[in-house]
């Protein structure tokens, strides 16, 4: 089977079953890692992703439906969404539409955070947008529950950095739209999380 996409930790195949297209996400072995670590990551991330896709949906966040999971083979079969990654759309969307979609992205992250969950990798690659402007979050392999202010701060820090590194010309628009959306859902904690974001940005470097 030809891979449809080779990501950092997974290979995605498209297959047809029951008259529909299904995505099979497989976490292959990485021979350059210590076997113990590799096996632990592939197993825990596969089962975590499967669980978190459902938890997120229960929090009101659209995610692809899971058809089956095969932890032993480190694979998940899920719905193939009809849309594009937000990453591919940023440069071509009209400003007001881009703002609207990014505000929605912020809202979805707000819904996760309000429910005590962090996404773990909230980049524009992990947001799928369909032609009608509906959006989904995907790739929950790094998601975690029992989120603290620190974890939420890291999540927003990662989102902001994705805007900075990948969409530098739109960074300010994207960040402020995402925060607008986030604030409408998770208002009581927004300021606290944001001040943590500033703190996190300064860590890990010489002072």
């Amino acid at each position: 089977m030809e891979p449809w996409n080779i990501g950092a930790e997974s290979i995605i195949y498209r297959l047809e079953q029951w008259g529909r297209i299904i995505l099979l996400k497989h976490r292959p072995q990485k021979p350059y890692l210590l076997k113990d670590i590799d096996e632990f990551l592939r197993t825990s991330r596969t089962s975590r992703e499967c669980k978190m896709l459902t938890v997120a949906r229960n929090l009101g966040v659209p995610t692809p439906m899971v058809y089956w999971i095969d932890v032993h083979n480190h694979s998940i079969a899920m719905e193939c969404l009809q849309g594009k990654q937000l990453k591919q759309l940023v440069a071509e969307l009209a400003a007001d539409r881009l703002q609207k979609i990014t505000r929605e992205f912020g809202k979805l992250i707000g819904l996760l955070h309000r429910g005590g969950m962090v996404h773990g990798d909230p980049t524009t690659s992990n947001v799928i947008v369909n032609p009608r402007g509906n959006i989904w979050l995907v790739d929950f392999g790094l998601a975690e529950m029992n989120a603290t202010v620190e974890m939420k701060g890291v999540d927003l820090h990662l989102m902001r950095r994705a805007f900075e590194t990948t969409h530098w010309d739109f960074e300010a628009i994207l960040w402020s739209a995402a925060l607008d959306g986030y604030r409408t859902i998770h208002a009581e904690e927004t300021e606290q999380v944001l001040s943590r974001v500033e703190e996190i940005r300064e860590r890990g470097r010489y002072h």
Binding site: D36, F40, G120, D121, L142, D155, L158
Partner: peptide
């Protein structure tokens, strides 16, 4: 090998 906390957040 003894397992140690493995902590990756996005990139």
């Amino acid at each position: 090998y003894h397992q140690l906390p493995y902590s990756v957040k996005g990139m």
